[in-house]
Structures are given as structure tokens and as C-alpha cells.
């Protein structure tokens, strides 16, 4: 197993103040997440809004320092590697292509920014590189001197992808790269991402709440709930045999195109727990249809199953002596 990027018991909390004189409270956006991102894979991170997906992405990019835990890039802590080294190897594609491109720069200047920052080549070489990469993401070269406002959402997202790839990074962290786009454009961008992955041997961390997309492109899936990874499995087993009750509910919630069926019932109720005041024990237990005795007292650890590949954090799957525990998550 060759882990390229590793998150080790990663925690990020925010102090949430409500006015000057009230007590500040701590929000654990990400709570003890441990993940291996392996070379060449597409690791999808799914979960509902507010579960900490984007905070995790920002930490993996080095944009947000973790409160606790460490991120290592091929065994070296990214804190010690330096910002530029990480930037060279890990690049983002953001959700909203309307906010991720500087409206005052031309497309060429936006895509050339990483080259400029790292002092790659002369202006002429940079220009050639930019035109190359624009070509690669399917944008005609005459767009180079236009401004973002002249481009459609899909074209803008292609520019964002070009900027991410221009330094030949190894890992691209896509934070919901298609959810701000029209449905018809989404598939184009997804296919582009998949093609580029094959051609350039990229590794993706793909954050999404669109399960159909995830099933289509991911090799492994991590399901997050309230800042924790509750299930980690390869895509096939996750979609064929979801084990955590939350994963089961998530899959059941996917809308079917059948018009007569109406909204699926997830048995979850409406009570999304307050992340400022997470429930004791398993944070999912107030909504869990299968909760039993230990659920509201003991936080389940993320445990590998017998095969050693997939893992789930749920008391329904008790550890057997054969099970090896993943690095213990902090409570």
C-alpha cells in the first residue's frame, strides 16, 4: 500500500463566538479523521452539508492548519515541507468557478499564476505551457486573452482545472467540482477529469454529495458524518453492501427517476444534530434506526474488517480478535 497523502487523527475546531460577552464555544468541524490517499486512486468523500468535507479539503491543501493531528506527504509532515513544496504537488479545483477565477486577470494570466509564483521558465515558455494546458482541458487558445466573465460556467471550470494541472501536481483535491454547474455540463467536466487522471496518472480526492457521480468515478469512498469518517470502503462494496446505518440511509436517499415513487423514506427523521453540541457516544445514534445499548455511551472506533481494506465505525460490527484497529480516533 503506497500512501501518498496521509491524514492522521486530523482535527479542526473553530471557536464560535456569539457576541462579545457570551461564552465562546468550540465547533469540531473535523474530528479525528484518519485517511490514506493512495497513488492513482480516486478517493471520494461524501456526506451531507456541514459534515466537515470542505474543512478536510482545506486542511489537505495546507490552507488551514489542523488543530490536532498531522498530514503527511509521502511520510513527511506538510508543515515541515513548506508551503511551496506542497503547492507544487497538491492542487485544488473549487466548487464555484465564478468565485475561483480572479475577474481582473485574463485566462492566460490565471492559469500562469502557479508558474509565475514558482518562477518556472521565461514569460514565453510560460505562455506556451499555458496554451498547451488550455488545449488539454479542451479550451481553444483564443480564450487565453479573455476575461473570466466572458466564459460560461463549464468553460470557467475548465480554466480552474487547467490552473490546477499546469504545475503537474500529483494530487488534485476537487471540492464538489461539478455541483455549481448545469447538469449537461457536469458530465463533460467529469469525463474531462477522468481522462486527465488516466493521461497524467493523477490522484484525486473527490468531495461530493452526489452519489451517482461518486459511484461512477471513485475507486474508494469515505463517508463522513459530523466530522468523523463512519465508513471507508472500495466503491463496489460500499454501493453493493453498505454497512453503516448512515451509509445505508444515504444510499436510500438517492432520488430515483421513477416519477410515481415520491421522496424516499430514509427513516432518519429531521433532527440534524447541533455540531456545537454533538450527542454523546456515536454521534449518529439519535437518528439511527438500529441503535442499541452502547450507542449513546461509547464512541465507536473506525475498525477494519477481516479483509483489511474496508472499515466501519459502528457498534453493529463489533471488533473480533482478527480485526486490526485503524489508528485510534480521538473522542
Amino acid at each position: 500500500m503506497n500512501a501518498l497523502l496521509t491524514a492522521d487523527a486530523l482535527t479542526r475546531s473553530f471557536e464560535v463566538g456569539q457576541g462579545m460577552f457570551r461564552r465562546r464555544r468550540t465547533l469540531h468541524a473535523v474530528n479525528g479523521v484518519s485517511l490514506d490517499i493512495r497513488k492513482g486512486e480516486v478517493l471520494a468523500i461524501v456526506g451531507e452539508s456541514g459534515c466537515g468535507k470542505s474543512t478536510l479539503a482545506r486542511m489537505l491543501l495546507g490552507l488551514l492548519p489542523p488543530s490536532a493531528g498531522a498530514i503527511t506527504l509521502e511520510g513527511r509532515n506538510i508543515r515541515d515541507l513548506g508551503h511551496k513544496t506542497v503547492a507544487r504537488r497538491v492542487q485544488p479545483v473549487f466548487q464555484d468557478p465564478y468565485s475561483s477565477l480572479n475577474p481582473r486577470r485574463t485566462i492566460a494570466s490565471i492559469v500562469a499564476l502557479p508558474l509565475e509564483v514558482h518562477g518556472v521558465g521565461t514569460a514565453e515558455e510560460r505562455r506556451r505551457k499555458v496554451l498547451d494546458i488550455l488545449d488539454r482541458v479542451g479550451l481553444p487558445q483564443r480564450f487565453a486573452d479573455r476575461y473570466p466573465r466572458e466564459l460560461s460556467g463549464g468553460q470557467r471550470q475548465r480554466v480552474a482545472i487547467a490552473r490546477a494541472l499546469v504545475m503537474n501536481p500529483e494530487i488534485v483535491i476537487c471540492d464538489e467540482p461539478t455541483s455549481a454547474l448545469d447538469v449537461s455540463v457536469q458530465s463533460q467536466i467529469l469525463n474531462l477529469l477522468m481522462d486527465l487522471q488516466k493521461e497524467l496518472g493523477l490522484t484525486y480526492v473527490f468531495i461530493s454529495h452526489n452519489l451517482a457521480v461518486v459511484e461512477h468515478i471513485a475507486t474508494r469512498v469515505a463517508v463522513m458524518y459530523l466530522g468523523r469518517v463512519v465508513e471507508l470502503a472500495d466503491t463496489d462494496s460500499l454501493f453493493r453492501n453498505p454497512r453503516h446505518p448512515y451509509t445505508q440511509a444515504l444510499l436510500a436517499s438517492v432520488l430515483t427517476p421513477e416519477p410515481g415513487l415520491g421522496l424516499p423514506d430514509t427513516h432518519l427523521g429531521v433532527a440534524f444534530p447541533d455540531p456545537l453540541n454533538p450527542p454523546p457516544g456515536c454521534s449518529f445514534h439519535p437518528r439511527c434506526p438500529r441503535r442499541f445499548e452502547p450507542c449513546d455511551k461509547v464512541t465507536p472506533a473506525l475498525l477494519r474488517d477481516a479483509g483489511g481494506e474496508n472499515a466501519v465505525a459502528c457498534h453493529l460490527y463489533p471488533p473480533s480478535p482478527a480485526n486490526a484497529s485503524l489508528p485510534k480516533t480521538k473522542n
Partner: peptide, 28 residues
């Protein structure tokens, strides 16, 4: 708070570069 500032940081740009080249032209 715009993503292009985050993108510039993720590209390894220095704070001076971000403030002068990404932020300043947009508040002109």
C-alpha cells in the same frame, strides 16, 4: 473570502503577492 484568493494561496503565492496582485486590483 473569494475562492481565487484560496487558489492563489494553494498555488504557493506569498501574502504580498496575494494582497497586491489578487486583492488590490479587485478593490480598485
Amino acid at each position: 473570502s473569494q475562492d481565487y484568493v484560496a487558489a492563489a494561496r494553494a498555488a504557493g503565492a506569498s501574502t504580498a503577492h496575494i494582497v497586491l496582485r489578487e486583492v488590490l486590483p479587485n478593490i480598485a
